[in-house]
Every structure is written in structure tokens, then in C-alpha cells.
């Protein structure tokens, strides 16, 4: 009787801060929590990085399109761009122009082959650019779908451990049970905290990347049409 009362009083009622919950957890639960925390950190790193990258990319596209449609000669533009590594539309343009120049400098006279080669070169560059845009988005998808399960795993393990402890101490006092369950639930909480932003960001970023990719593809098609017309003009002479 008195023992129960004393243990109830002695139970750690006040020590349930986040840190205490983490520190009192079992090894596996700690591991799960740390892993989820790392995943969350990486998720947010990707989100920040991609948001900045897409902004930059979009600005570059706008700038290039302005320059491209300003009536500047393609040769001049190529000279300006080829001096430094370009990205986005610039890279597409440089790749196409490089292939064009190589073909004419060597005096190859097969217009069909030239057309095909230019398109291939542009395809490769396009694929690389889109890859760069969409890189690491897969991690967000993984975190978004897997983090809740990982957190749940931690919770199950934690509750299992605390029930074993209850069975060992032969007390059903809520003050004895509660801390273990609280720390177990913390794992699920961290899992959800990591997963929710990951899912939202994944949807947003993939749609953004898709839009940018479409713009690149449209430009590639347009540019290849321009080059094709040029080839026809040169060969028909």
C-alpha cells in the first residue's frame, strides 16, 4: 500500500521534456529517432536547395529567351556562351551549335545526317538538364512515404519495451506507464514531422521541374526547326 504510494510519488512526473523523452528511450528507438531527424534535415536541405535552383533556372531561361529572340546573330551568341559553362537553354543551344559547326568545318555534306546528329546532341543535353533538375526529388518521395512507418516502428518498439518494464515492475500505475508510452509516441511524431513537409515539397517540386523541362523541350524543338531550315537553305544552294 505505502510502497505503491511512494513509487507513485517517486515516479518521474516532472521530467518529460523532449530531451528527457529522447534520452530515456531504448537504443532502437533512439536510433529510429536520430535517423528520422537526419532524414528531416536532409529533406529540408533538398527543399531549400531545389527552391533556390528552380528560381535561378527560371531566371536564366527568361534571360536567354530574351537574348535569343532579340535578333542577335547565332554566331555571336555562340561565341558569348561557349566561353563559360552554360546551363539550361544555353547548354542546349551550345550543344546544337557545336555539332553544327563541327559538321560544316569538316565539310560533311549529308543534311539528313547533320539534322539527326544535332537532334541527338540536343536530346542528350536536355536529358542531362532535366536530370539535374529532378535529382534528389526521389529522396523526398521516399521520406514522405517511409518516415511514418519508420516512426511507427519506433513507437511499437518503445511501447513493447515499456510494457516489458511494467511487467517486470509489477505495477500498473499510470505514472509508471506514461513516460515509456510518451517517448515511444515521440518517434511517430518525429516521423510525421519529417514526412509531411517531404510529401508537400515533393509534389510542388516535381510539378515545377516538369514545367521547366517542358520549356526546355519546347526550345529544343524550336531550335532544331530553325537549324533544319538553315541546313535546307545551305544545301539547296
Amino acid at each position: 500500500m505505502n510502497e505503491v504510494a511512494q513509487s507513485a510519488l517517486a515516479a518521474p512526473v516532472g521530467t518529460i521534456s523532449l530531451w528527457d523523452l529522447f534520452w530515456q528511450a531504448s537504443f532502437i528507438v533512439k536510433l529510429v529517432m536520430l535517423g528520422l531527424l537526419g532524414a528531416s534535415v536532409w529533406t529540408w536541405a533538398i527543399i531549400v536547395d531545389k527552391t533556390l535552383l528552380y528560381g535561378r533556372f527560371r531566371r536564366q531561361l527568361n534571360k536567354f529567351e530574351n537574348v535569343f529572340w532579340s535578333g542577335q546573330s547565332l554566331e555571336e551568341l555562340y561565341h558569348n556562351l561557349s566561353e563559360r559553362p552554360a546551363s539550361g537553354m544555353g547548354a542546349l543551344f551550345v550543344a546544337a551549335m557545336r555539332e553544327w559547326k563541327k559538321s560544316f568545318e569538316k565539310g560533311a555534306r549529308s543534311p539528313l545526317g547533320l539534322q539527326t546528329r544535332i537532334e541527338k546532341a540536343m536530346d542528350v543535353t536536355l536529358a542531362r538538364e532535366i536530370d539535374a533538375l529532378e535529382s534528389r526529388l526521389g529522396f523526398l518521395a521516399t521520406v514522405g512515404s517511409a518516415a511514418p512507418f519508420i516512426g511507427l516502428f519506433g513507437t511499437v518498439i518503445g511501447i513493447m519495451t515499456s510494457f516489458q518494464a511494467i511487467a517486470a515492475s509489477k505495477q500498473t500505475n499510470l505514472a509508471v506507464v506514461a513516460p515509456g508510452i510518451a517517448e515511444a509516441l515521440l518517434a511517430t511524431a518525429i516521423g510525421l514531422v519529417a514526412a509531411i513537409p517531404a510529401v508537400i515539397a515533393y509534389n510542388k517540386l516535381t510539378s515545377d521541374a516538369g514545367k521547366l523541362g517542358n520549356r526546355l523541350e519546347a526550345f529544343a524543338d524550336e531550335f532544331s526547326a530553325i537549324l533544319s531550315r538553315q541546313i535546307d537553305e545551305k544545301t539547296s544552294r
Binding site: 523532449l18 531549400v48 536547395d49
Partner: peptide, 23 residues
Amino acid sequence: TGLAASAAIHVAALTWGMWSLSS
């Protein structure tokens, strides 16, 4: 930059959590 920003966000969130959820 992304990693640094993310780390900063997490540290801030955890600190806030320690204060507000501790007691």
C-alpha cells in the same frame, strides 16, 4: 546552402520545442 539552412531550421525548431513542450 540548403543543408546549412535546413540545419538552422531544425536547430531553431528543436530549441523552441524544448522550451514549449518541456513542461
